[in-house]
């Protein structure tokens, strides 16, 4: 560095310094070794506020290489503020190729969706997580929740689902729906809609979860069993939509409601913008490659 003192401000590749990346990679490796376990890590200040994906950005920065192709989605869309700025951030500090195409990406950073196009081996899905602790709603003490994870005391998780059924007649949790990983740890899948829970099960892609404010990293290695919690007489179900996407006609995909005017006009369109555009380019007739009914829960 001494020879280049004239450069006043320069970033290390992918913004974080190498020591920090090593620390984060260690946490990631531990997380992969213990699927679903929340590994504490020394979360850094990032040039964005907490809640905007600082955990996901730190993971991406630690695993990205010069040959990687990055895709960033926010609620399934490639073109919303959070996605655009994080993509631009990495294009600038790492100089990597970016894409909006799910199939071409090697790393996909996501806020709350899993792309409709099936992920393959070698791909990494990085989740931004606001609250990593699934038990937090009922047990505010961190000392106690850690003990509950250690001793596998998960009765409380079902208390939450019980409350749902008692109040609404069915399990009304539609996002951040708790899952059990490899029959051991109960995990919060981040606020993804429960529609995406079956896609986590036995996924060929590596899934990494980063919570910057809460300083936790956890992971699902490829081909990990991920089971959504439920009751025998109230089994887990995903959301169903009555009509297909208004733009591309896709069924069995997750739809967003779009308000068109102030007179009640609305339409339902794919939340995954890349998937929707692809289908429209191909004439809107491509069969949906992902059938939720086939995925075991």
């Amino acid at each position: 560095m001494s020879a280049r003192t004239s450069e006043i401000a320069s970033y290390n590749f992918a913004y974080l310094d190498e020591q920090t990346k090593r620390m984060i990679r260690r946490a990631i490796l531990k997380g992969i070794a213990i699927p679903g376990y929340q590994v504490p890590f020394a979360s850094r200040e990032m040039p964005m506020p907490y809640g905007w994906g600082t955990g996901g950005v730190q993971i991406t920065a630690s695993i990205i290489g010069r040959d990687d192709v990055l895709k960033v989605i926010d609620q399934g869309a490639d073109d919303t503020t959070n996605a655009v700025s994080i993509r631009a951030f990495f294009a600038r500090v790492a100089g990597v190729a970016v894409t909006t195409e799910t199939a071409k990406a090697t790393i996909i950073q996501t806020r709350h969706r899993i792309p409709e196009h099936p992920l393959g081996e070698g791909q990494v899905l990085v989740y931004q997580v606001p609250i990593p602790e699934p038990l937090r709603y009922l047990e505010p003490r961190e000392t106690e929740t850690r003990k509950m994870h250690a001793l596998e005391e998960y009765g409380l998780m079902h208390v939450k689902l019980y409350e749902d059924i008692a109040r609404h007649g069915h399990i009304a949790t539609t996002y951040a729906y708790p899952v059990k990983v490899e029959g051991r740890y109960v995990m919060d899948p981040s606020p993804t809609p429960k529609f995406d829970n079956p896609k986590m099960h036995m996924s060929p892609a590596l899934q990494l979860f980063g919570a910057g404010r809460e300083k936790r990293i956890y992971a699902l290695p490829p081909y990990t069993r991920v089971v959504s919690l439920d009751f025998e007489d109230h089994p887990f179900e995903v959301q169903r939509f009555e009509q297909p996407c208004a733009l591309c006609g896709a069924r069995n995909v997750y739809l967003d409601e779009v308000i068109l005017d102030d007179r009640g006009g609305r339409m339902f369109v794919c939340s995954d913008t890349d998937y929707c555009e692809k289908r429209r380019d191909e004439g809107g007739v491509a069969a949906n490659p992902f059938e939720p009914d086939e995925a075991a829960t």
Partner: peptide
């Protein structure tokens, strides 16, 4: 019901 769920009862009814 919490204790029942804690010892593994998974039938809401």
């Amino acid at each position: 019901g919490e204790r029942l769920m804690a010892v593994g009862d998974r039938h809401y009814g």
